[in-house]
């Protein structure tokens, strides 16, 4: 089987840090790595490390590092293509509808759209859905304690285990 090594740029946001890095992804893309149940770690390269209170200031740089997946709250990607093969990223090729939402974690408020097959279903999104991270498209995230800062991207992945609230912010037709 042919394998490829693509590098994806990402901003990993934890409780207190911003980690700008590159992730070497295989044919299943970044989403495949995140959902890989055989490892709880994520290998990252070209790591630039900042504190959330000064997110633009680089305080350290490392060639490589490991991140504990469970401790990553958000992953900000510039483009949704960086997620990986489209089918894997959204769980299939079914027609989907965008639903605007607000999600909160203890440290962040995230606004954007999630894609649903029929209608918005919080249980499906938070409990029954597969995958460690929820994909929020065209999203912006504000750290709760640093409201002057925001992170935005074509997609933000939100750690499902850290979500405390989800709300549909507009009631568009989704059926």
């Amino acid at each position: 089987m042919l394998t490829s090594r693509n590098l994806v740029n990402a901003d990993m946001l934890t409780e207190a840090h911003r980690i700008s890095c590159r992730v070497a992804v295989g044919p299943h893309g970044l989403i495949g790595l995140l959902n890989d149940a055989t490892t709880s770690l994520l290998e990252i390269e070209d790591v630039y490390f900042s504190r959330l209170q000064q997110p633009a200031k680089i305080v350290a740089q490392y060639e490589a590092a490991h991140l504990v997946k469970a401790q990553v709250t958000l992953i900000v990607l510039a483009r949704r293509e960086d997620l990986g093969p489209q089918g894997l990223a959204r769980g299939g090729y079914t027609r989907v509808f965008p639903v605007p939402v607000l999600l909160t974690t203890p440290e962040y408020e995230v606004q954007g759209t999630v894609e649903v097959v029929r209608q918005f279903d919080a249980v499906e999104l938070l409990v029954a859905g597969i995958g460690r991270f929820v994909q929020v498209y065209n999203a912006a995230a504000v750290p709760t304690l640093h409201g002057e800062t925001s992170f935005s991207g074509g997609v933000i992945l939100v750690n499902r285990a850290r979500i405390e609230l989800v709300a549909q912010t507009a009631h568009g037709k989704a059926a």
Binding site: N9, S20, A56, A78, S150
Partner: peptide
Amino acid sequence: TARAQTADFDAAVEAGADSYLAKP
């Protein structure tokens, strides 16, 4: 740069950059 958040843009301008473009 790939580090393309608003805070990065503001910091670059503050440092003296004239313009900013995100990778890719």
